[in-house]
């Protein structure tokens, strides 16, 4: 979100967030986890499509824009850079909706986890629930609209932590490569996961 004075005070109305979750559940009732997954990904793609392209001349400027939430890549989340390639999302951008839903409606139906399993088995295995599919798809789609020094950005997801504390880390066989790209160790990853919501890596193709 734009970093202007007072802007962070504009909180979404709980009804809009809950209505979105119910809308997705309505789709799942009719089309199952596969249909819901398609809608979630489509939702993220269409959001990324509406965003403008970005170009940076220096990697440091890009990181600065990410941390200040001025880039489209972090327009919806607060992040910090654990290294020049490793971004850490402090709080899930869906936390407010998650809290409002559990407060006003009750426990999330199982479909929100089932759809993540579906996504994990077919796309990238780092989602825990509905929101993760949206944000991970969005990050990848938004990254395609950004260049640094003329090179396109790539995003890969290392780990996700749900608001209830459950974690999903990339498969063992992928982890060493991802950690090397992120320039962090496994111990550092575990330290980050204790009190943050997601760890992801940004890089350019050589």
């Amino acid at each position: 979100m734009k970093n202007i004075e007072g802007y962070q005070e504009i909180l979404d109305n709980p009804m809009v967030d809950i209505a979105t979750y119910l809308f997705l559940e309505d789709i799942a009732d009719k089309q199952g986890a596969a249909g819901m997954n398609n809608y979630l990904m489509s939702l993220a793609y269409s959001l990324a499509r509406t965003m403008p392209e970005e170009e940076y001349t220096k990697w440091e400027d890009f990181i600065d824009a990410l941390v200040k939430s001025e880039s489209i890549l972090t327009a919806f989340e607060k992040v910090y850079a654990a290294s020049e390639n490793c971004m850490v999302t402090v709080e899930s951008p869906f936390l407010r909706g998650w809290k409002e839903y559990t407060k006003r409606i009750g426990e999330f139906p199982k479909i929100h986890k089932d759809v993540a399993e579906y996504y994990n088995s077919r796309v990238t295995p780092t989602a825990i629930e509905t929101g993760d599919i949206i944000i991970q798809t969005y990050r990848k789609a938004a990254a395609e609209k950004i260049t640094v020094n003329g090179k396109k950005i790539q995003v890969a997801h290392i780990a996700t932590v749900s608001p209830d504390g459950s974690k999903k880390i990339a498969p063992e066989e992928w982890l060493p490569i991802l950690l090397e790209k992120a320039k962090i160790t496994r111990t550092q990853l575990n330290m980050i996961l204790r009190n943050n919501a997601a760890v992801w890596v940004i890089y350019t193709l050589q």
């Binding site: 979105t20 809308f23 489509s42 939702l43 959001l47 509406t50 919806f76 929101g131 969005y138």
Partner: peptide, 30 residues
């Protein structure tokens, strides 16, 4: 983020299912 994503979905959904389809979805959500 959910609300902003929803707004972009409205456009997407209206293009695919038509605006009448979106109305039907919204009535069911309500």
């Amino acid at each position: 983020m959910l609300d902003v994503a929803l707004v972009s979905l409205i456009q997407d959904m209206s293009e695919k299912a038509g605006v009448e389809g979106t109305i039907q979805y919204w009535l069911r959500v309500g």
